[in-house]
Computed example of a mutant assay.
Amino acid sequence: MIGVGLSSFERYVAAGLLPQARQLGGSALWLVEELADCLRNLPTSSLLPPPTGS
C-alpha cells in the first residue's frame, strides 16, 4: 500500500508522519482507512520511481 521498507515505515510512524498502530493482543495493526487518509494528505511529488533492474 505504501511502497516503503519496514525500517522506513517504523521511522515514519515514530516521527508522526504515519498513524500509530492499534494493538490486538501482541500484534500491531494499522487501519487501512487511517493510512489512506494520512497518505492522501501528503504533498504530491514530481519524483519519478527508481529505474528497474535490467
Rank of each mutant, 00 (worst) to 15 (best):
M1P: 15
I2S: 02
I2K: 04
I2H: 03
G3D: 09
G3T: 05
V4Q: 07
V4N: 09
G5Y: 00
S7H: 04
S8C: 11
F9Q: 02
E10K: 02
E10V: 02
E10P: 04
R11T: 00
V13Y: 01
A14E: 02
A14V: 01
A14D: 00
A15P: 05
G16W: 00
G16R: 00
L17P: 00
L17N: 01
L18V: 01
L18S: 01
P19K: 02
P19A: 07
P19T: 05
A21T: 10
R22W: 09
Q23C: 07
Q23K: 15
Q23I: 11
Q23V: 14
Q23F: 08
L24F: 12
L24C: 09
L24V: 11
L24E: 13
G25C: 11
G25Y: 08
G26F: 03
G26T: 08
S27L: 15
S27W: 12
S27H: 14
S27N: 13
S27K: 15
A28L: 15
A28K: 15
W30P: 07
W30V: 04
W30T: 04
L31I: 08
L31H: 09
V32C: 09
V32K: 14
V32N: 10
V32D: 10
E33H: 09
E33D: 14
E33N: 12
E34T: 04
L35E: 11
A36T: 11
A36M: 08
D37S: 15
C38G: 02
C38S: 06
C38N: 03
C38K: 00
L39G: 08
L39I: 12
L39S: 09
R40H: 06
R40I: 05
N41M: 12
N41S: 15
N41W: 06
N41H: 10
L42D: 04
L42G: 04
P43D: 03
P43M: 05
P43G: 04
T44F: 11
T44K: 12
S45Q: 12
S46M: 06
S46D: 07
S46A: 07
P49M: 07
P49C: 07
P50H: 11
P50C: 10
P50G: 09
P51H: 08
P51W: 06
T52F: 08
T52G: 10
G53R: 13
G53I: 15
S54F: 14
